[in-house]
Amino acid sequence: MVRAAAIWAGFVTLLVVPAWVAATSPLLAWREPVYVAAGFAGVIALMLLLVQPLLARGDLPGVALARGRRVHRWTGAALVAAVLIHVGGLWLTSPPDVIDALTFNSPTPFSVWGVIAMWAIFATAVLALLRRKIGLRLWRRGHRALALIIVAGTVLHAILIEGTMGTFSKAVLCLAVVAVTLPAVITFRGWAAWVRSATTSGSD
């Protein structure tokens, strides 16, 4: 009980503090609403990366694995939406900077990592939609490999940016994202449990 409360408290703190720091950044005063929204969509995308492995592994106390997996799919869809808003909003704010980034021609080193993570997120969405066609084995391997690329790309992207997020709270959130992602993509425990639940319930 105490452990569950501590996990939830830590989880919520890891999400709320960086979001609060970003939402109260002095830089916001000098940005148009569409730029503010684009930036915050990026912050939310990073936050969702902390949520995803925890849901997939059933690590959040009180959220059963099967339910966590259902939410995980919707969170994944939200991640795609957040990336579209992030890139679309930046495009409206400064089209040439986004074109440079998307064509891997940007002077800023972080852009390339963000674009790589973006494509890996889109590829995951496509793979998820095709998962029944491609088979569980390929889907599992593909999802895990892409998840690694997404997390590595996003963390490098976020850390190298001087933006609305606070340096310290951003670093802590990024470390946490890496810490929860690695066991999720390396271990087979979560997948084995999911396969068991899927075969016994007959769904999926």
Binding site: L27, W30, R31, Y35, L90, S94, D97, T108, F110, S111, L160, I161, E162, G163
Partner: peptide, 8 residues
């Protein structure tokens, strides 16, 4: 000048 698009 303020930071925009990741760099001041």
């Amino acid at each position: 000048i303020v930071p925009a698009f990741g760099q001041p």
